[in-house]
Amino acid sequence: MRLKVSHSTSYSYEPAKSGLIQSLRMWPSVYAGQKIIDWRVDIDAPSVRRGASFRDGAGDLIETVVIRGPVEQVTVRVSGEVETQDLSGILRGHVEKVPPLAYLRASRMTRADPALAELSADVIASTGGGLDAAHGLAAAVAEAITYQPGETESDTTAAEALALGRGVCQDQAHALIAMAHCADMPARYVTGYLHATADGTLHQASHAWAEIHVDGLGWVGFDPANRCCPNDLYIRLGSGHDAAGAAPIRGMATGQGAETLAVDLHVLDASQQ
């Protein structure tokens, strides 16, 4: 499928910030499921300096943006087209240097508590290991944490989300990572875009899911929010140990100004244009 993305993230500061730096991880992953037709990341702000660009060990392209103040507003504008293919969630042909075992380590967000460990153990008891177990864990997360926006914060941990029983894709992905770790399966957080869900409902949003490393298959994506593996309706951007580590934009501003965020995002079927 050919997906067309236009995504703008605007930060407004009142009063103006005296300076700003961002680390961007906003380029589609290079792997067999994605062919990049065209992709641009533009920064709208006065006095922008871009640089320190590289591909990290996890395969993500990273770039640094520095904006000298005063900064009242900065907009990060992503536009591009990607030809996607349904690989049933398998991240085939992705070049990376981080050993899977490094993704068995929990962060503050993905640390398992007894409840997560128990839920994980229940799934493993009935599914055994491998791919079945990974599917089972994803299904269990979807059952245990109902998708409901507005109930959790960006720093809600996997354990807190499970206790609450509600959350967003970030919380579900964190919980799935924690449970996979309990089953001794490497797991990580993935960010990207979603065009629509399998039933055709347009989604058109930034999205997050988890990848679990399955023996024999390598990394496989699981999206508990939509109870499926990422297919050609998804664009994969980057990964990390948790949401903070995988964040498409990580920034820091100097000065006292309050921040207002506005996002405009379209993920369209390019053939319909």
Partner: peptide, 8 residues
């Protein structure tokens, strides 16, 4: 172990 420097 810092995954951020893998490959460097």
């Amino acid at each position: 172990y810092e995954t951020a420097v893998c490959g460097i």
